[in-house]
Every structure is written in C-alpha cells, then in structure tokens.
C-alpha cells in the first residue's frame, strides 16, 4: 500500500526513530512502512494520521 509517511515525516524534520517513538513503534517499523514492506494495523494507521493531523486515507492509498 502506497503512503506519504516518508514525505510527511521529512517535512516535519523528524527521524524515523523520533516518529516511531511518537506513535509507539520501533524505527524499523517506520522504515518498513515507508518502504511499503509492511502495512500497519488500523490502530497504528490512525495514530500516524493523528500525528500528521490528516485522515488515514490522505496518508495511505489502498489502490497503490
């Protein structure tokens, strides 16, 4: 599933570790999401959307 996590994280000036810490997962998990190697749970998807102050569907594209 395509997503804008990397773009939004870099726009915020955060490292993967800092974003992971903010939403309660490891740096490796953020890295895997950004590389489309892992689809997050609903809970984590909502946490990321909440963090970036956007909707889940703005962050993740299920058709990607």
């Amino acid at each position: 599933m395509n997503n804008d996590v990397r773009e939004r994280r870099e726009a915020e000036g955060l490292s993967q570790g800092e974003l992971g810490d903010a939403v309660g997962v490891s740096r490796q998990t953020i890295n895997a999401i950004e590389r489309d190697r892992y689809d997050p749970s609903l809970e984590l998807a909502f946490a990321l959307a909440d963090f970036f102050d956007c909707r889940v569907e703005d962050l993740f594209d299920p058709d990607g």
Partner: peptide, 10 residues
C-alpha cells in the same frame, strides 16, 4: 504531538 497510552520506546 500524538499521545499514546503505551510506554515509550525507552
């Protein structure tokens, strides 16, 4: 910043 009930990574 998003707040989570889970303990921190540390």
């Amino acid at each position: 910043m998003y707040e989570t009930d889970d303990p921190s990574i540390e």
